[in-house]
């Protein structure tokens, strides 16, 4: 009896052909290399970054000749000497470091209850509202958001107008350090919530119920159950917020009124205002080094948190 053609349909034949071609191009014996092949995009990306850093490292050892505006042929540590001895760079670096730590702490404090309610609420409407409120800022760029604060907090802005209604004279809410920190916290909050939410989702609700049934009130449950189990989320969120704050450019530039520069602003000045690319490269490399050390210390002390994708360390 002749077999029916439908017993081996055309789509299967096509798949056989595709498999045969795939086997010819990538034999089964190569299968061990598949994970490495999938890593290739990341390797290329990091490789390009390293190449750029190498070029910057070369530039950082060359000083600017202001008679020709060319970098020197000779290598020296002059730029690094300036970076470590000039008061300007110390001021800007310490402001950036302290600022990033303050912003990280405040952002995590605000992000936790938001994430907790978003994850635990039984109201689908409230969860959707919180999600929309979380993602909406991502559609608005950082610069636009900063300008929004100029409108709201300016001398003739909405806040001062409201204060004027109750007889309070206009006060300067912008162009100072607190304004920069405020702007950074507002910018970083969605990032922190996004990093915290998966960690909170991973905490079984039954754990909290069990703590309650054993007599713990909500404060003890929160301190002894939720917070410890949420630690990976805090670490991941903290790392992201800290590194983004440390390297931020736009918020200090727009809300700082020119006198609250962070390191990124100082780097921009060297590259684009004084045309001293060697000094700019030096500051950029030091920023990378400081950021990496801070992340390394956190990894060593607390692990990588949610960034470790479930691994303990």
């Amino acid at each position: 009896m002749r077999p029916s053609r439908t017993s081996y349909p055309l789509s299967w034949r096509l798949m056989d052909a595709v498999e045969a071609v795939a086997a010819a191009v990538w034999p089964r014996s190569f299968s061990a290399a598949v994970p490495w092949l999938m890593l290739m995009p990341a390797v290329v990306l990091v490789g390009l970054l390293v190449l750029g850093l190498w070029d910057m490292a070369d530039g950082s050892f060359r000083t600017l000749d202001t008679a020709t505006f060319l970098p020197s042929d000779d290598y020296s540590l002059a730029n690094y000497d300036r970076a470590f001895t000039e008061k300007l760079f110390f001021t800007v670096a310490s402001r950036s470091l302290i600022g990033s730590l303050i912003v990280t702490v405040i952002t995590l404090v605000f992000a936790f209850p938001y994430s907790y309610v978003m994850v635990r609420t039984r109201s689908a409407a409230l969860r959707k509202f919180l999600l929309i409120a979380l993602f909406l800022p991502f559609f608005i760029g950082q610069v636009v958001r900063a300008y929004g604060w100029l409108i709201i907090l300016g001398s003739q802005g909405m806040v001062n107008e409201a204060l004027g209604l109750v007889g309070v004279a206009p006060i300067r809410l912008l162009y100072n350090y607190p304004a920069v920190l405020f702007g950074l916290v507002q910018y970083m909050l969605p990032f922190a919530v996004l990093m915290l939410a998966p960690a909170l989702t991973a905490i079984p609700e039954e754990m909290e119920s069990a703590a309650g049934s054993l007599g713990a009130n909500w404060v003890r449950t929160f301190i002894h159950v939720v917070l410890p189990l949420a630690k990976p989320g805090f670490i991941g969120a903290g790392l992201v917020v800290m590194t983004l704050s440390l390297t931020d450019f736009a918020i200090p530039a727009i809300l700082g009124g020119g006198s609250q520069d962070f390191i990124a602003n100082a780097i921009y000045d060297q590259f684009f205002r004084t045309s001293d690319q060697g000094m700019g490269a030096t500051l950029a490399l030091l920023l990378v080094a400081v950021g990496s050390i801070m992340v390394g210390v956190v990894f060593a002390l607390f692990g990588a948190g949610t960034l470790a994708m479930g691994r303990s360390k």
């Binding site: 202001t66 300007l88 800007v92 520069d261």
Partner: peptide, 16 residues
Amino acid sequence: VEHESEWFGKFKEIMQ
């Protein structure tokens, strides 16, 4: 031009 970087640094040092 020759002193821009030096003046810039000094001004920034005061203002920052």
